[in-house]
Structure formats: C-alpha cells, structure tokens
Amino acid sequence: MIDFGYAPLKINIHDLDKADLSLMDWITARDESFRLCIACGSCTATCTAGNFTNFSFRELCHSIRRGEVEKAVRESEKCMLCGKCTLVCPRNVNTRNIIKLVRKANQNFRV
C-alpha cells in the first residue's frame, strides 16, 4: 500500500463479531471456574505482583473474554503464582490454574 502519510482511523470499539475467543473456549474447557468471575477485583487488590507493577488478574480474564489474547498472554507472565488471589476470590475461581493455562496456551499454540 502506498504510504500517504496518514491511515484510516482505527475504530476504538470491541467488535465481538471479530473477536478471537478461542483462548476463552480453550481455557473454559479446562477450568470451568473461569466463567465464575464477578469482577469484584479482590484478586487485583491483594496481588503481590500488582503491588509493584500494573498487573490485574481480573483485567487479564476480561481481556480473554474480549478476545485480546496477546495482551492476556503478555500480562500473564507477571504473575508470581503466590496464591493470594485464590485465597480471596469470593467465587472460588481457580486463579493460578487459569494463569498456567494462559501460559500453556502461549507455548502450545503460539497464540
């Protein structure tokens, strides 16, 4: 394409018609508790890693649900697997398992 020095405006909108939800399906098939989040944010609030960097497990899960796979994979590496989030989650979401599943998906499928 010829570079005219400008590009068409990027649409800033979640397009769920085009979203890649394969990671969501892959994870949900392996850990049903992924569905149970009520977005209360306890995990992010208590997070050991989140004390030092911008890392939110709640947001990561949400990214996956909206098909922002790359972002989720990139973020997942910041987790220290310490398990505090598992202890505070009011819906018993198996948080560490979901982080590991995201990491596995990254390795197995290069998503």
């Binding site: 209360c40 306890s42 992010t44 609030a45 997070c47 709640r58 947001e59």
Partner: peptide
C-alpha cells in the same frame, strides 16, 4: 485498606 478500583482497572 486495599481494593481494586475496577472501573479504573487499578489497585487502590
């Protein structure tokens, strides 16, 4: 007290 400001996506 610690919480997440979930509307801002940041710990608070």
């Amino acid at each position: 007290i610690k919480t997440e400001d979930t509307l801002a996506s940041r710990p608070l």
